[in-house]
Write a protein that binds this DNA or RNA. Structure first.
Lengths: 140, 140
DNA sequence: GTAACTGCAAAATATTTGCATCCTT
DNA sequence: AAGGATGCAAATATTTTGCAGTTAC
C-alpha cells in the first residue's frame, strides 16, 4: 500500500511523519514526473499553507528525497530520487525531458548522460542534461 | 571600437539603438560569461529602471541576441549568442559551465553536446547541458 | 515532555502592467 | 510626425522570516 511506502520513505530519511509531508510525497509518487512548487500547491488543493510547501521541499531536497531540475522559466521542478541517492548524495546521472506539448517533465531513467571532455583547467562536479521536445504520450 | 559593434548588433537585429540597450549589451560584451537579471542591475549601477532591464532582456531574447541558461536556483542567466543564431534560431549546441567557487557561468564554445538516444516515442527539439564544478580561473 | 512541524501574519523580493513622456527613426 | 522605448507608480506574485500553537516521537 502506498501509505506504507510513504511512511517508510520518510522514516528512512530521518524525517518525522506528518500530514503535509505525507501529502506532498504522495503527489510525487502518484505522478510519474516532476512537479514545480506551484504544481504542488495546485494539486494539493487548499490543504495546507504555501510556506509549508516551501519548507517541505527544502527539507526533502536536503535529505536527498527529491532532486531539483533546472528550467529556463524560473520555475524549478522537483522529482523523486531513486533509492540510491538518499542522504544528499545524488546519483543524478539521468536525462531530464521536458515536453513542449503537455508541459510535463520526466526523468528518463534509462538514458544516462554521456561523458564529455572539458577544456584544460575545468573540473566537473555534476552534470545536468535537459532535453525538450515532444514526449511519448503527446507524440501521436 | 566597441561602440560600433554594439550599434551594429542592435541594428542587425532590427532594434532601435537606445541608451539602455547599449548599456546592457555592453555589459554582455565586456563580460565573458553569463549574467542574471540581478547581475545586470548591479553592474549597471543606478543607471536605469528595473523594468527596463526586464523588457530589454525579453526583447533581446526574442530577437535571438541572447539565450537563456537554466539554473536550479531560480535565477536564469543570459549569455550572448554567437553570430549564427540571430532571429530566434539558436545554435545552442554548446555546454554551459557553472563554477561553484566564483559563481560565474560561462559558455564552453568548444565543447559540443554529444548526441543521445532517446527512448522510443520521444523526439528532441533542443538539448541543454549544464556542468557545475570548478572553472579554470578558480582551479589553482 | 521536548523537539520539531505547522499556520498565520508580515516583511522582503521579484515580476508584470498601464500610462504619460521622451527618444529614435 | 509616428512608433517605439523608458520611467514611474502601482498591482501581482513569489519567497523568506518570526513567532505562537500544535503534533510526532
Amino acid at each position: 500500500m502506498m501509505e506504507k511506502k510513504i511512511d517508510e520513505l520518510l522514516k528512512k530519511n530521518h524525517l518525522s511523519v506528518t500530514g503535509g509531508r505525507k501529502k506532498i510525497l504522495e503527489l510525487f509518487l502518484q505522478q510519474e514526473g516532476a512537479l514545480s512548487h506551484s504544481d504542488i500547491e495546485r494539486k494539493a488543493g487548499e490543504k495546507f499553507d504555501r510556506v509549508t510547501v516551501y519548507r517541505t521541499l527544502q527539507v526533502f531536497l536536503e535529505k536527498g528525497l527529491i532532486h531539483s531540475i533546472p528550467t529556463s522559466d524560473n520555475s524549478i521542478r522537483y522529482a523523486l530520487c531513486k533509492e540510491d541517492c538518499s542522504g544528499g548524495h545524488h546519483h543524478d546521472d539521468h536525462v531530464h525531458f521536458i515536453c513542449n506539448t503537455c508541459g510535463n517533465t520526466v526523468c528518463l531513467e534509462g538514458v544516462s548522460i554521456p561523458a564529455i571532455r572539458l577544456p584544460r583547467g575545468y573540473s566537473a562536479d555534476q552534470v545536468e542534461m535537459l532535453v525538450s521536445g515532444v514526449c511519448k504520450s503527446c507524440n501521436i
